[in-house]
Amino acid sequence: MLRDITLGQYYPVDSPVHRLDPRTKLFGTMVFIISLFVADSIWGYLAATVALGLVIRLTKVPFSFMVRGLRGILVLLLISVSFNLFLTDGQVLVQLWIFRITWEGLRTAAFMAVRLIYLVLGSTVMTLTTTPNELTDGLEKSLGFLGKVGVPVHEISMMMSIALRFIPILVEETDKIMKAQMARGADFESGNLIQKAKAMVPLLVPLFISAFRRATDLAMAMEARCYRGGSGRTKMKPLRYQSRDRIAYGAELLYLAVMIGLAVVL
């Protein structure tokens, strides 16, 4: 049942990409996204394909797992492709009743589709190889400069990691309460919308009560350990760049240079 849901979708294997510093991966993802918008020729996209394919190979994550993220954008993809395909003016290729496909339309639609798919794949590589906690750590460190202008970076990232940490716990709790109410004859599946909404009450009330209880307990436990926000706080596992991160940064910058070069030259 609910137990089968994977959140944060981290895929636990050991690979060179998994071992990289989260900041390196954040930067790499950003570079990849920028490069997709820089590219405007077939050569640019080819270079992006090679780079993405190489990184995916390095992650050791099965490709089927990678593609799973694409299902979410299928509708968006179809809409944007058909808009570009049918509504672009230019040299007419096929004309069917009021539908007209132009050479330019075909070109933009194809580029658009590839761009969208690569955007999702690129960020999926990041989330599949980085635990949610590493991700928040990386974001906290990378966005640390915002703290100078009064943004509570540490607090926000602490809230993010607590929220992430509690998702599986609350999912489990939901599962448990659902089963307990089903053992008392509750029915969560059948009925119309109003009946279904009503059936959620025996699930949501205990869930909220337990969430509040857990929140108070956690706040108490943090205070008991003298937690008082981010100032002067050190980390058990501070982020430190290794030589592989330097290599990765080099590769990322080289890739960006190639992509810009291709866009300028061609």
Binding site: K176, I177, K179, A180, Q181, M182, A183, R184, G185, P202, P206, I209, S210
Partner: peptide, 14 residues
């Protein structure tokens, strides 16, 4: 489920 009653651990949370 009405014939086989199941009381979960910490049933007060339900």
């Amino acid at each position: 489920r009405s014939k086989v009653g199941l009381v979960f651990q910490y049933p007060e949370y339900q």
